[in-house]
Design a binder for these strands. Structure first.
Length: 511
DNA sequence: AGTGCAGTTGACTTT
DNA sequence: TAAAGTCAACTGCAC
């Protein structure tokens, strides 16, 4: 006869260090660590085989780490409620533990179903917080301080050993193929697993990160100079707390040095630390308002774009053949690496939403699938921001030619991803259509006219912005979501011209 | 050496 | 994380 189980349900927190559910569950008695592969989740339109590949590598490594402690990770395939319910019938579940998750609409609904099941089965389900994201947040006031406190709290050490749980627990991790995922080649994907994550953290903080601040904007330099920790934070092979504390420790070590290098390091790590706050700041938005995965944040923009994407434009954009070299190079880089720097993500989204006038849901889903680090809580607020549908941000219509000139002046990045332009002289690399012999290139003409497409978009957005009831709803959105860093003056107290500029900048940054 | 002027730069505003 | 437009200050240069 078996005994009641304390189950630690691993989700996107594939590690044993700084894992409070695991540590706390162990105080109850022997623990069964469990990962549930949910075929229905992996059939959703925002997930992909490249993400599963990263997750599977991480799950595999987690399994070995747990096995070394005495109880390997149990891997079950199916519906979470059904699996818990069966385990409960056969063994009895004494307690269920997992990290609080702000995922997509599907995982939100699943968590509600698990919570309902647990309640009726009288199984206590505890969900410690994993990020600085606060469930049932009442007000954004004091949010940043709470984040600082949470991230400064002690990192929970990995358990020393696990008591083996009697029984024959499945351990096989299905392949993408077995899960029915569409083929999704990503030759330069970052490897999953905590060991890779720790190496990435180490090399960023000690070798690659010095010029982070200056090099993160350009795809020429960002692949190396960015932290590249995003997939590890998404899948939880590293915890945000560990990253925040490792960054703080490195800054501490640089403190007394007057070396010019130390100065550059400090500036870059301060910038990096700011981005760690952002991560949770954005996830908090989706936590507070899950509908923004599906609907315009500001409803005055409903109906602005057709709900149905032009298939020709969507395909050209997502496959990197719009005829705009810098856009196409960035999209191809993303498709091959599963990652691109933040600014280029914004440009790609802006181009789809403004120049191509595609509905953000379709283009957003493509990007979601291509990001190995897809984090719904960051992604969808960003998608809406770059599409102009939040109602509280200034329009940011990126000029793909200007961005190319700014970020890739020599065309080196373009050439490495768009070999069709090999015969094109350097002076035309950003605007091949101006080259007299452009027709001889195996490369399409621009899919839209750059200037006129941007102008049309700007006018359409502006028409809505100055509509009668736009302002009131925008005010409510600011109250709910915007950062408080600029102070309470955001809500309308009189301010000096300087303070006003400052707070507006903060708002456009943070929506 | 001062003046006028085209072109440039930068801060700020508008879309 | 934008870009274009406006305006004033500034610069280089011809006379």
């Amino acid at each position: 006869m078996s005994y009641p189980l304390n189950i630690v349900w691993f989700k996107r927190d594939l590690r044993i260090v700084d894992h409070r559910p695991l540590a706390w569950a162990l105080q109850m008695g022997p623990v069964l660590p469990l990962y549930i592969v949910e075929p229905e989740l992996w059939a959703q339109p925002d997930v992909s085989a490249r993400q599963w590949a990263f997750a599977a590598e991480s799950i595999n490594e987690l399994q070995q780490a747990l096995a070394a402690l005495g109880q390997p990770l149990c891997v079950m395939v199916g519906d979470a409620v059904q699996i818990f319910s069966q385990l409960h019938e056969r063994h009895g579940i004494a307690s269920l533990w997992s990290h609080e998750e702000t995922g997509n609409g599907w995982t939100y609904a699943r968590d509600l179903a698990v919570a309902a099941w647990a309640r009726q089965a009288s199984v206590p389900w505890r969900e410690p917080r994993q990020f600085g994201v606060i469930r049932r947040l009442k007000s954004r006031n004091g949010w940043a301080k709470a984040w600082d406190g949470d991230m400064a709290s002690p990192v929970t050490p990995a358990p020393k050993r696990l008591t083996p749980v009697e029984g024959d627990w499945p351990t096989d991790i299905p392949t993408a193929d077995e899960l029915g995922l569409a083929p999704d080649p990503c030759p330069h994907r970052q490897p999953g697993g905590r060991v890779a994550g720790l190496h990435t953290l180490e090399s960023f903080l000690n070798e690659r990160g010095r010029d982070y601040r200056y090099k993160m904007s350009s795809p020429v330099t960002a692949f190396n100079a960015s932290s590249r920790l995003s997939p590890h934070l998404t899948w939880g092979t590293l915890s945000m707390r560990e990253v925040a504390q490792a960054t703080a420790a490195r800054v501490e070590g640089l403190q007394r040095s007057k070396d010019a290098n130390a100065q550059a390091w400090r500036a870059s790590l301060a910038s990096f630390s700011g981005r760690q706050h952002w991560h949770c700041h954005f996830i908090q938005k989706l936590e507070d308002e899950p509908r923004i995965e599906f609907e315009n944040l500001h409803r005055a923009y409903d109906g602005l774009r057709s709900d149905v994407a032009d298939p020709h434009r969507l395909a050209a954009w997502s496959e990197g053949r719009t005829g705009f070299p810098f856009i196409d190079a960035c999209m191809r880089a993303l498709n091959q690496h599963g990652w691109i720097n933040f600014r280029m993500r914004a440009m790609l989204m802006s181009f789809a939403s403004y120049h191509l006038w595609l509905p953000w849901l379709d283009s957003g889903l493509h990007l979601a699938r291509k990001f190995v680090d897809y984090e719904p809580g960051i992604h969808w607020p960003q998608v809406q921001m770059q599409s102009g549908t939040t109602g509280i941000n200034t329009m940011r219509i990126y000029n793909p030619v200007k961005q190319g000139l700014d970020q890739d002046p020599t065309g080196r990045f373009i050439r490495s991803f768009v070999p069709e332009l090999d015969a094109l002289p350097d002076s035309f690399i950003h605007e091949p259509w101006l080259w007299p012999q452009a027709q001889s290139l195996p490369y399409p003409p621009p899919i839209v006219d750059n200037a006129s497409a941007a102008k049309l978009a700007r006018e359409a957005l502006y028409a809505i912005r100055k509509g009668a009831d736009h302002r009131q709803a925008a005010h409510a959105i600011v109250a709910k979501h915007a950062s408080r860093k600029a102070g309470s003056a955001v809500m309308g107290r009189k301010r000096s011209a300087k303070a006003k500029r400052g707070s507006d900048k903060q708002l456009t940054f943070d929506f």
